[in-house]
Amino acid sequence: MVTNYFELFQLPIKLPIDSGQLTVNYQQLQRQYHPDNFAQATDNEKVAIIQKSAMINDGYQTLKNPLKAAEYLLSLQGVDVATEQNIIHDADFLMEQFSLREKLDDIESQNNVELLDDFHSEISQRKKQVYQQLLDDISQQNWQAALNQIYKIRYLARLIEQIEKLQEKQFAL
């Protein structure tokens, strides 16, 4: 049986996740299932405790990341988040991505730190807007729309990574 991370950490199955409560519950579970507490246990029990501890860590890493938590919540609803990898059914968004990449190329060729910083802020803001739409789609149980928002966030996150690499490169100069 697959463990539901929301149930494991005694959290409601909704987003956004209360990160403070997640951390408190994670720390309690970590203390409860710490291998040192089971020094006298049999080898089989020790293996089970180590597996439980690993699952607690995995659940925490999943739920503390907003995008991973959204992907996980959709998977609980039977939505296959991995298979349709990067298929976006939104022509306007794809055109926007194309123009944003062109803009990044232009900024890179100009070697302008201020323009790059402004572009970083613009794309970060756009990512927040898409995440808010994702939360709205999830609250309305519109799983396909939510899945499209996840794909959009992935695109924007990759663009942000490229911008940050350029920022590092410029900073090193």
Rank of each mutant, 00 (worst) to 15 (best):
I50P: 07
L100I: 03
L159I: 10
Y155D: 01
F6T: 00
K165L: 15
Q170V: 13
F93M: 02
I49K: 02
I13F: 06
M1L: 11
K52T: 14
S109T: 12
I87T: 08
Q10R: 09
L173Q: 11
Q110F: 14
N112I: 01
A172C: 03
A145K: 10
R158Y: 04
I50H: 13
E114T: 15
E122F: 12
E164I: 00
Q129D: 13
A146T: 00
E161G: 05
K68C: 09
L116Y: 03
A54E: 14
Q40Y: 12
I50Q: 15
I150G: 06
K52D: 04
M95V: 15
Q162M: 05
L15S: 03
F119E: 00
E168W: 09
N37L: 13
Q167H: 11
N112F: 03
N65L: 01
D58M: 09
L104V: 08
F98H: 14
L156Y: 05
F38C: 07
I87G: 04
Q167C: 01
E102W: 04
S53C: 07
K127E: 08
P66K: 02
F9K: 11
L63R: 02
V24F: 14
A41C: 07
D43E: 15
A69D: 06
Q40D: 14
L15A: 01
V130E: 11
R158W: 00
G59W: 00
L76N: 05
Q61S: 08
H89A: 09
S124P: 02
S75H: 13
L159T: 09
I56M: 05
L100H: 10
G59K: 03
L115W: 04
Q141F: 03
E45P: 08
E164M: 05
L11Y: 03
E108F: 06
I160A: 06
K152L: 00
L73F: 05
T3M: 05
Q30N: 12
L135S: 00
V113P: 03
A48D: 06
K127Y: 08
I56C: 08
L74N: 00
N57W: 08
G78N: 10
A69G: 07
Q61A: 10
E84C: 05
F38L: 07
W143Y: 08
A41K: 05
E164V: 09
A146F: 00
L100C: 03
N86W: 01
